[in-house]
């Protein structure tokens, strides 16, 4: 593996291998001294053109636990806000010795572009590109689901597990990467959201449900993944009001009572409490939100390790 740009870069074996490696990394995170010397002397650059403190911190911690040097470059207030291009910024950082560039960018395909032009030679990790993909998020979700559903998860795929993804399917990179990766791993993935936010090509797949109550009844999911409602969707008539959204697509106490006792609730964070998810659901024993955060560090350690050890061999 040279880069990680899309969940589609991973076949089933590669995905399972990465998840297993992430389990090993997770064990490291439970030790008293949470550090491996493996990437000593390597430099990881977090190149973030969009604000995302959580993802950035997660990558930073992952790199540091592997003893790599980390540079954080946030576009806001930097040369980028003065009009510097992705190309120039990436080349500048590579000239300082980056081995891996972790890229978060508002433009779909930017990580792909960085990896496939002659701009830089570093390994590229897509940490979220526009409304395209967010593969490490899908990996941490898969890891969480596998741990929650399978007693001895190592080596296992997700066959037989039913996942329901709820929210903005048109613009969500989390939904896209999960649809790809969870399907690769054998899960049965259903989606649910307002028709204004469900692309026609997805609807024709037959796994789209417009109303959450119908979806819960029909699918009887093992996992419910609630997507964050982005501020800009609220102002552009994708749905009438926040209250109506919460009423029809929000996970609340009454729906919590109707999902299975062991059904996992996932959310990529940050949550809009009271909108797509209420406090009762977010704080319930079904909620895997903090496991997701924990697994995020482990998965990103596994990805960095795989990319940089691949380089050595």
């Amino acid at each position: 593996m040279r880069h990680l740009l899309s969940a589609a870069d991973l076949d089933k074996d590669q995905a399972i291998k990465l998840l297993d490696l992430a389990e090993d990394m997770s064990d490291v995170n439970d030790r008293e001294i949470k550090k491996l010397p493996t990437l000593r002397g390597k430099t990881v650059v977090n190149l973030f053109f969009e604000d995302s403190t959580r993802t950035r911190i997660s990558f930073e911690l992952a790199a540091k636990r592997l003893s790599a040097d980390v540079i954080n470059f946030a576009a806001k207030g930097s040369s980028v806000s003065k009009g510097e291009s992705l190309k120039d910024t990436a080349q500048t950082l590579e000239a300082m010795g980056a081995d891996v560039i972790v890229l978060r960018h508002s433009s779909s395909g930017s990580a792909h572009r960085l990896a496939h032009t002659d701009w830089v030679g570093s390994a590229i990790v897509n940490a979220g590109d526009g409304s395209h993909e967010h593969p490490t998020q899908a990996l941490l979700d898969a890891m969480t689901i596998r741990q929650g559903a399978i007693k001895h998860p190592r080596g296992k795929d997700l066959t037989g597990i039913k996942v329901l993804i709820v929210g903005d399917l048109s613009h969500s990179r989390v939904a896209r990467s999960n649809l790809i990766l969870l399907t690769t791993l054998g899960a049965e993935v259903h989606v649910c959201g307002p028709a204004t936010l469900a692309p026609a090509s997805l609807v024709s797949s037959g796994r789209v449900h417009f109303l959450l109550d119908d979806a819960i009844k029909l699918v009887n999911p093992d996992v419910v993944m609630m997507l964050r409602v982005q501020q800009e969707r609220m102002s552009d008539s994708f749905f009438p009001t926040e209250r109506e959204y919460a009423r029809i697509w929000g996970l609340n106490k009454s729906r919590l009572a109707r999902i299975g006792e062991n059904t996992q609730i996932l959310h990529p964070g940050p949550m809009n409490r009271g909108l797509e998810i209420d406090a009762a659901s977010a704080d319930s024993k079904n909620s895997m939100v903090l496991n997701q955060v924990r697994n995020g560090v482990a998965v990103r350690m596994a990805v960095l390790l795989t990319l940089l050890s691949g380089e050595a061999s």
Partner: peptide
């Protein structure tokens, strides 16, 4: 060239 040697959206 500078108008095309960019990411797609730009």
């Amino acid at each position: 060239k500078e108008s095309k040697d960019t990411d797609w959206a730009s």
